[in-house]
């Protein structure tokens, strides 16, 4: 999948809470940064706070979307039906849910194919191994405690890099 890129990745737990967020920033986000810094001098909200607020809002928005889509898929396609992805002009959202109602969501650009096996792999080989089996992580993860540990983050980065080899 050379040339394709991944934008962000979220995990929601069975209590509908976002317990993990990761964003990959492309080079196009740099000019936006400088305009945001200018706004700061006018007494606006600091850019770091703004970005954190936006990330939280994004997660809520995404959860609302998948929650409704998932319900619609089940109502139309039977109770075992799941939606796999949807696409807009700008991005594609991939979705995978485990029987324990852990929901994995990935946003990529529109050219990317089916990512279901990739999300499954992230869950089975990274989340289960490094988060669920970590004796230091709590059993459940209110506010994401214990999810973003070094092994999980490192593994995720490496795995995603191996799929989305950088363009050039």
């Amino acid at each position: 999948m050379a040339g394709a890129s991944v934008y962000s990745f979220y995990i929601f737990d069975r209590h509908t809470e976002c317990i993990y967020t990761k964003r990959w920033t492309g080079p196009q986000s740099i000019p936006q940064k400088s305009t945001a810094t200018n706004a700061l001098s006018n007494g606006a909200v600091p850019v770091s706070v703004k970005r954190a607020m936006k990330a939280e809002d994004d997660a809520k928005l995404i959860f609302g979307t998948i929650f409704s889509l998932r319900r619609m898929a089940r109502q139309l396609g039977g109770k075992d039906d799941q939606f796999l992805s949807y696409r807009t002009g700008e991005y594609k959202l991939h979705y995978f849910e485990t029987p324990t109602e852990l929901k994995l969501v990935m946003l990529t650009d529109t050219r990317v194919g089916n990512m279901r096996t990739v999300l499954y792999q992230i869950w089975a080989t990274l989340y289960v191994e490094y988060v669920v089996k970590s004796p230091l992580a709590p059993t459940e993860h209110p506010r994401g405690v214990g999810v973003a540990n070094e092994l999980f983050e490192g593994g995720l980065e490496k795995f995603i890099d191996s799929i989305f080899t950088p363009a050039q």
Binding site: D80, T100, V128, K133, T139
Partner: peptide, 19 residues
């Protein structure tokens, strides 16, 4: 109980079973 809460994820990942 606390073991079960975690064990199920490992069980599902290993066996690949659904609902």
């Amino acid at each position: 109980y606390n073991m079960g809460l975690r064990l199920i994820e490992d069980f599902l990942a290993k066996t690949g079973t659904g609902q």
